[in-house]
Simulated scan of single mutants.
Amino acid sequence: MGDDNKKIFIEHAHGNQEESGLKESWDGSQEDFYKSIIRNQQDDMGKIGRYFRDELAQELYGMRISLQNFTNRYGDFEELRCLRDSLSTLVIEIRNKAVSLYNPILNDLGIFHAVDEVLSTYKKRSGFTIDTVLDPSLKELNHNSQVHLFKFLNAMFQYLSDEFPSQAISMSVQIIEFEVFVNVLPYFRGGEAAVSEKSEGSPMRLIKIAELYNARIINDTLSAGILLKLTT
């Protein structure tokens, strides 16, 4: 597997590196280097989310209010109603995107409240039920790790809602030796035969989710459930 503690050299694409001195060295391990990249990406997404929520959405909402005031004064027209409705829809979409990038409940109250909020939304929207058991030690994770886990769980909730042919899902999240284990068990409708075992590997969508969030699929069978290991 090679030596993870070797120096990683970062070369800038332009300029003479001997003259400009732009060749940098990372003295830590490759794992720490990649984690630093992820943390920087998460910080950037948080800034974008706050901009969407606090500035862009507010500006669009202000435009909608101004348009409403205009129509109240000069009369309403079909074109103006369409524009007003479009602005309302756009504000909602932007705020939803902002929450996925920067969840205020996650940042203010922690991962337990944030997960409860997401699950209540799924239940109201589709009636799909996911019961969760979260390890109390999750609150001891640093903020970046909580954000990473929350985004991973969001992706898993959507995957389970779309792909699992079950009546309900039980999900447990446990920390063992600084690694997070996520265990998913399906509950099928009464009298419904268990889904036959897959002869091949995990579904491509689940594999992509695991790759995106640095998780490893330990087990994936519809009848026995899914077990993933997520390095925080």
Results as ranks from 00 to 15, higher is better:
residue 105 I to P: 03
residue 99 V to D: 05
residue 174 Q to Y: 10
residue 82 C to H: 15
residue 24 E to A: 15
residue 116 D to N: 05
residue 76 D to G: 14
residue 48 I to N: 04
residue 93 E to R: 14
residue 14 H to P: 08
residue 171 M to G: 07
residue 216 R to N: 05
residue 25 S to I: 15
residue 175 I to T: 04
residue 172 S to I: 07
residue 167 Q to I: 04
residue 192 E to W: 00
residue 18 E to Y: 05
residue 89 T to C: 09
residue 222 L to N: 01
residue 182 V to Y: 12
residue 126 S to R: 00
residue 81 R to I: 15
residue 202 S to I: 05
residue 23 K to F: 09
residue 26 W to A: 02
residue 80 L to R: 07
residue 82 C to T: 14
residue 23 K to Q: 10
residue 81 R to T: 14
residue 208 K to Y: 14
residue 228 L to Y: 01
residue 11 E to R: 09
residue 155 A to H: 08
residue 110 G to Y: 08
residue 10 I to W: 15
residue 142 N to M: 08
residue 158 Q to S: 08
residue 210 A to T: 05
residue 159 Y to P: 06
residue 39 R to I: 14
residue 181 F to L: 13
residue 231 T to H: 08
residue 144 N to K: 13
residue 22 L to K: 15
residue 116 D to V: 00
residue 211 E to L: 09
residue 159 Y to K: 10
residue 164 F to K: 06
residue 65 I to F: 01
residue 146 Q to D: 03
residue 64 R to F: 03
residue 56 L to S: 06
residue 119 L to N: 01
residue 106 L to H: 07
residue 82 C to M: 14
residue 219 N to G: 01
residue 18 E to P: 02
residue 80 L to K: 05
residue 111 I to W: 12
residue 49 G to E: 05
residue 94 I to N: 03
residue 149 L to G: 00
residue 176 I to V: 15
residue 161 S to A: 11
residue 223 S to K: 12
residue 204 M to T: 07
residue 144 N to R: 13
residue 133 V to S: 15
residue 79 E to S: 10
residue 54 D to Y: 03
residue 117 E to T: 04
residue 115 V to R: 02
residue 185 L to Q: 10
residue 174 Q to F: 12
residue 101 L to C: 06
residue 183 N to K: 13
residue 95 R to Y: 02
residue 209 I to F: 00
residue 177 E to F: 10
residue 117 E to K: 14
residue 94 I to L: 09
residue 217 I to M: 00
residue 100 S to Y: 07
residue 40 N to I: 11
residue 206 L to G: 00
residue 51 Y to V: 02
residue 209 I to Q: 07
residue 120 S to W: 04
residue 121 T to R: 10
residue 123 K to P: 02
residue 5 N to Q: 04
residue 171 M to E: 01
residue 57 A to R: 01
residue 62 G to E: 11
residue 74 Y to Q: 01
residue 161 S to E: 12
residue 91 V to K: 13
residue 87 L to C: 06
residue 31 E to H: 09
residue 4 D to I: 10
residue 106 L to E: 08
residue 224 A to K: 14
residue 191 G to P: 04
residue 36 S to C: 08
residue 173 V to F: 15
residue 55 E to T: 11
residue 139 K to M: 08
residue 56 L to G: 00
residue 196 S to V: 09
residue 192 E to S: 06
residue 47 K to P: 06
residue 89 T to D: 14
residue 32 D to A: 08
residue 115 V to K: 07
residue 204 M to S: 05
residue 44 D to G: 00
residue 32 D to I: 04
residue 72 N to D: 14
residue 167 Q to F: 13
residue 41 Q to F: 15
